[in-house]
Design a protein around this nucleic acid. Structure first.
Lengths: 194, 194
DNA sequence: TGTTGTGAATCTCTTCACAGCT
DNA sequence: AGCTGTGAAGAGATTCACAACA
């Protein structure tokens, strides 16, 4: 909206874009402490600034990626340069053919270097894109090295100590879910509209 | 457990493996209509058979993948042969260099062939791994060709008509979430344990 | 003792509905 | 008329807690 030189926006417009209900948008914005005007709606710049303040670490977040298989490289490609606040600054793989190669400006380290690199680079967030069989082991090593948050893309639930945040995305499970619901006739839609 | 020749399992064992509470496991199993014995627990074979009956289409599900970038190829690799019930049987890309090449036994078709291939191969589930800018357009074309379910991996919410099931996985958003929660001190753990 | 099956309680998120304002 | 802010209700999902049983 900023790029279109629109200064104000109504909750129902944001709701339509995000495929949620307007009341949800209003409640979420409320929690930011922002007030809109019933006449003009919400001020875009104010929203952007406030959301940024809540979500972004001003110094940005340094991220490590473990596992440079297809999926790991896909994620490297995706984040390369795109999100200045979320920078993948180190990668790891056990394959000697990958170690010391540079992917999208990021050097691939060997597994053995993991603890040292995480500590030296002061990395606090990690992405796991290794095979399911070694995912827990990698998570344990990341946590031991000091990580505070993990995004797990291996199709296996992981355990981490309290104080470490973990989020898992399981593409396999998601596809199973789609296959299941698409077979139920009159499949319900996921996105409630206003 | 089957491979370890274990015939029975308690709800708390399944709960530990899935990182959920035992009461949750019991309620879920209840909904399958399966009864366990307080002495031996649940019969593994019975559970496997029953879950399969609910979740799996006996004929399997034929899946199309649109977008053979890094992420699309990662998913092709992952599913290649691994899930007999979820078979990616067609792929699409706009890049002429990819069209007619074969990836993991699956021929890449041009964008123009999409409607015909979807219909001829009787495909009902699709995976979208194209750039966000064209994701909605691809979804529209897939739906027009007769798909009933879509797994969207582009970081953009999509609209589909009622009757079509859509599931979106947004890796970017998930990483933002991890970065956010890992900065909150005493970050809560995601997985409640018993 | 230890487990299942389940009614009831709890928790959390979402939505309704409407007063208040312009 | 049309929007925001929000108390209250609603809808689900999760968990508790305990009877029943071996």
């Amino acid at each position: 909206m900023r790029s279109r030189e629109i200064t104000h926006v109504y909750s129902h417009q944001l709701a339509a874009a995000a495929r949620v209900k307007a009341s949800q948008v209003r409640r979420d914005i409320m929690s930011l402490g922002i007030e809109g005007s019933p006449v003009r709606g919400y001020h875009c710049e104010e929203l952007i600034a406030s959301i940024r303040e809540v979500l972004d670490n001003p110094e940005g977040e340094r991220v490590a990626l473990v596992g440079l298989g297809n999926l790991g490289r896909a994620i490297m490609t995706y984040f390369a340069g795109r999100r200045p606040k979320l920078r993948i600054v180190a990668a790891f793989d056990v394959d000697p053919a990958k170690v010391d190669r540079v992917y999208h400006g990021v050097r691939c380290h060997s597994d053995a270097e993991l603890p040292a690199v995480i500590r030296e680079q002061n990395i606090r967030v990690g992405i796991i894109t290794v095979p399911a069989t070694v995912a827990q082991e990698v998570a344990d090593r990341l946590v031991a090295a000091g990580l505070r948050g993990i995004l797990n893309l291996a199709p296996r639930p992981l355990s981490v100590p309290e104080g470490v945040y973990i989020e898992s995305l399981d593409v396999t499970a998601a596809l199973e879910k789609v296959a299941y619901f698409s077979r139920q006739e009159g499949a319900r839609e996921e996105t409630p509209l206003d």
